[in-house]
């Protein structure tokens, strides 16, 4: 049961959240022009690092807002959380 730092509500139990994979993957602007390969990257490919990972969560059973947070996938330690469109803080690594 992770304790996830929602930037609006503070730390809450994992069961209040849903996971959203890698943070900051932008919806391609020029969708009609990009190759199938690049489009596939957006649709299916997300970072999967062993170590610090900038990822998205949504506080579904709380404020229902999305946010981003650094988390270490080796030991589940959390780094800084940040709101959507806020600049990404440096990796704690």
């Amino acid at each position: 049961m992770l304790n996830i730092p929602c930037p609006w509500c503070g730390p809450r139990d994992e069961t209040e959240f849903h996971y959203g994979q890698e943070a900051g993957v932008a919806y391609p602007e020029n969708r009609d022009e990009i190759s199938d390969e690049l489009w596939a990257k957006f649709v299916f490919y997300r970072a999967n690092p062993k170590g610090w990972h900038a990822e998205r969560w949504v506080h579904s059973a709380g404020c229902r807002r999305w946010f981003n947070v650094w988390r270490n996938t080796i030991n589940h330690e959390f780094g800084e959380s940040y709101k959507p469109f806020e600049p990404q803080p440096k990796s704690p690594a």
Binding site: Y19, Q21, N48, K50, E55, R71
Partner: peptide, 13 residues
């Protein structure tokens, strides 16, 4: 479990 992890452990819930 819902999230990415290499820790070889999950939540008790």
């Amino acid at each position: 479990d819902a999230y990415n992890s290499y820790a070889q452990r999950g939540g008790f819930h």
